[in-house]
Write a protein that binds this DNA or RNA. Structure first.
Ligand SMILES: [Zn+2]
Ligand SMILES: [Zn+2]
Ligand SMILES: [Zn+2]
Ligand SMILES: [Zn+2]
Lengths: 132, 132
DNA sequence: GAGGGAATGTAATAAAATAACATCTGATTT
DNA sequence: AAATCAGATGTTATTTTATTACATTCCCTC
C-alpha cells in the first residue's frame, strides 16, 4: 500500500491502540472527536486497510482487528484464536492449517483464493483463571 | 435433537430443497406462503437447527446451509469450500484441518470449542468453464 | 488553470439480528 | 378436570451492520 490517507491512518491508529477487535460503529464512535460523522468514513478506510493486509476482518464477529505482525500484506492469509471470555484475539501460525486446507481443496479440485479460519474457545490466561 | 417442530421442519425443508446457502431473510420470503411473517420465526428455527447440527451457519456469507452429511450433529465441526462464481457450497473433510488447528492451538495453550473454516475460491466445475 | 481520478462528506436506505412482551400448546401433576 | 409449567409461537419495535447515491474537495498532470 502506497501511503495512508488521513482517515485510513486514524482508523488504523484506533485499531492499533488496542489490539481488541472493534466493530465499524465502535470505531466510528471513537473517531467522532476527529471529525468522523458517518459509517462510510470508517468502512471506506477499513476496505483499504483490509485490502493491504494491515487490518483483518473477523467474519464471526463482524469486527476488525489490526494485524499483529508484518507479512500478512504479502501472504494474504491469517488465522485467529478468539477467546470467548476475555475477547482477546491472537493471530496464529497458519502454515500447517493452510497445508491441510490445500490438501483437502485439491482433493475436491477446488482453487483456494482466501481462507477464513477463526477458532473460538478459551485462551491460556482465562483457562488459568476460571475452569471455563 | 428430539423432534422437529413445524417451523423448524419448514426451514429445514427450505434449505434442503436446494443446498445453496440462504440468508434468514431469503428463507423468510420463501416461507411466507406457509404463514411466516417475522424474522424471528426463521431465526428461532435456525437456532435450534444449527444447535443440532442439521444446519450450518456460514459466517462469511451471513447465510445458512443444510448439512450435507450425517454426523455433524455428533462431531460438531464443519468446513466449507465456497465457490465465488456459482455460489455452491461443499462441506469437506476437515480431519486434517482440525488436527492442524489443534496443534497450533495447543502451542498457544488455547482450548478449542468451535472452528470456523470457510475457504473461498473456485470450484472444479467453474474452473473448467472459465479461467477464473 | 483546466481536466481527471481518487478521496471525502453527507443523507438516505437496505440487510441482518435481537429485544420485549403477549399468547398458545401440550405434557405433568394434583 | 383444573392447575401448573416449559417450550414454542406470534407480533411489534428496535438495534446493529453495511451499502447506495450523489455532491464536493483534493491532488496530480497536462
Ligand atoms: Zn495479520
Ligand atoms: Zn481469554
Ligand atoms: Zn455438516
Ligand atoms: Zn463454482
Amino acid at each position: 500500500m502506497s501511503e495512508l490517507t488521513r482517515n485510513q491512518s486514524l482508523v488504523l491508529d484506533a485499531l492499533q491502540s488496542d489490539f481488541q477487535p472493534a466493530s465499524a460503529y465502535t470505531l466510528l464512535d471513537r473517531l467522532r472527536d476527529h471529525g468522523f460523522k458517518a459509517p462510510l468514513q470508517v468502512y471506506r478506510a477499513l476496505e483499504k486497510l483490509v485490502e493491504s493486509g494491515l487490518v483483518h476482518r473477523l467474519e464471526s464477529l463482524n469486527a476488525f482487528v489490526a494485524c499483529q505482525h508484518d507479512g500478512c500484506g504479502r501472504h494474504r492469509a491469517a488465522a485467529f484464536l478468539i477467546c470467548e471470555h476475555c475477547k482477546s484475539v491472537t493471530e496464529f501460525d497458519h502454515a500447517r492449517v493452510q497445508r491441510a486446507i490445500g490438501a483437502s481443496a485439491k482433493d475436491a479440485g477446488f482453487t483456494v483464493r482466501r481462507s477464513v479460519i477463526e477458532v473460538e474457545g478459551c485462551c491460556a490466561a482465562c483457562e488459568g483463571r476460571d475452569t471455563g
